[in-house]
């Protein structure tokens, strides 16, 4: 087998192993945590002290009366068939329960990620090309500060400033019947802005670092010494050399952003996956938590795999295992 193909197959095997490990941990970690889907009944507004018969009947209804191993085989069988099961709390297929929330989270990530990436990398490039100039230091300081702020704090500040003190944007993120994409975008403006500000500093810092490390290389000095126009030096030599680490880090940031976006959603009450996850966790809705986790994990693994493949394509040395 040629070396690049071997590297690719070993990469795919790594991802497969990772996915299997995650599937197993996903099941056992949740079930081993103390709690039960029936706990919600005992702590509701009309708390019910369930009799043993009631408990048993409900557990049988939800297939939770079997041994842990028995439940695991059922779970593994469902996963192999691509069936995420039925939510215990919502009484509907997990895919059906998750989709509306996932769709909204993806919309928020998509709308926030692209501007943050383009602006961050653009500012990073400008900053690297003007290294050590006074205004560049101010820019660096400002964006380091921004990057240090946790996402929920940025979200709270935006909410207070732009929805309460100066009510330019609506305070409610949920839609009303009959409202369309325009309204969705208006209600998304603040969460998206929070996302952009949160990721901007990170993109800027790693882009600036990547460009500066390439700018110091001999081939850049050589390209300039040859008298190539600055446009060609930047686009053909600088960007090309900096691209593999940029792509790899971008995929990592995108994967990690699912964590931060949950905080942003929670602050704005945006009905994305965070809302659903909190309910699923509070209610010990095992299939639903498993489904959310698997979909999130699948997205993260997919982005990482794509990044690895793109890097392999851009930099032949990685495909050859060097």
């Amino acid at each position: 087998m040629p070396r690049p193909a071997r590297t690719l197959s070993s990469l795919l095997l790594q991802y497969l192993g990772l996915a299997l490990l995650a599937l197993t941990l996903n099941f056992f970690l949740l079930r081993l945590a103390p709690g039960s889907p029936l706990l919600g009944l005992e702590h509701s507004e009309i708390a019910t002290a369930l009799s043993e018969e009631q408990k048993q009947r409900l557990l049988t209804q939800y297939g939770l009366d079997q041994s842990l191993l028995g439940q695991f085989w059922q779970y593994a069988g469902r996963m192999l068939r691509g069936d995420l099961g039925t939510s215990l709390y919502y009484n509907q297929p997990v895919t059906q329960a998750v989709w509306p929330y996932l769709e909204r989270t993806l919309l928020l990530v998509l709308l926030g990620f692209l501007p943050a990436l383009l602006l961050g990398v653009g500012l990073g490039l400008v900053s690297a090309l003007n290294y050590k100039q006074a205004w560049e230091r101010w820019l660096l300081g400002g964006l380091v500060l921004l990057q240090a702020l946790p996402p929920f704090l940025i979200a709270i500040l935006l909410l207070i400033l732009l929805a309460v003190v100066w009510p330019v944007f609506p305070v409610v993120s949920t839609m009303l019947p009959g409202q369309g994409l325009g309204d969705r975008l208006e209600r998304l403006a603040l969460p998206v802005l929070a996302y952009v500000l949160w990721e901007l500093g990170l993109f800027y810092l790693f882009a600036r670092g990547a460009f500066l490390s390439v700018l110091g290389n001999d081939h850049m000095t050589y390209a300039r010494a040859k008298g190539l126009p600055e446009r060609i030096v930047i686009f053909r030599h600088l960007l090309r050399a900096a691209l593999p680490p940029l792509v790899a880090r971008t995929a990592l940031i995108l994967s990690a952003s699912f964590g931060g976006v949950f905080f942003i959603e929670a602050v704005f009450g945006y009905p994305g996956l965070s809302t659903l996850s909190l309910t699923a966790i509070a209610r010990f809705d095992y299939p639903l938590i498993e489904g959310i986790f698997l979909l999130t994990l699948g997205t993260i693994l997919l982005f990482n795999l794509l990044a690895d493949l793109v890097v392999m394509g851009l930099d032949p040395r990685t495909a050859e295992g060097r």
Partner: peptide, 10 residues
């Protein structure tokens, strides 16, 4: 929907 034993109590 009318039947929802885990949600019904609130």
């Amino acid at each position: 929907a009318p039947f929802a034993p885990l949600r019904q109590a609130g």
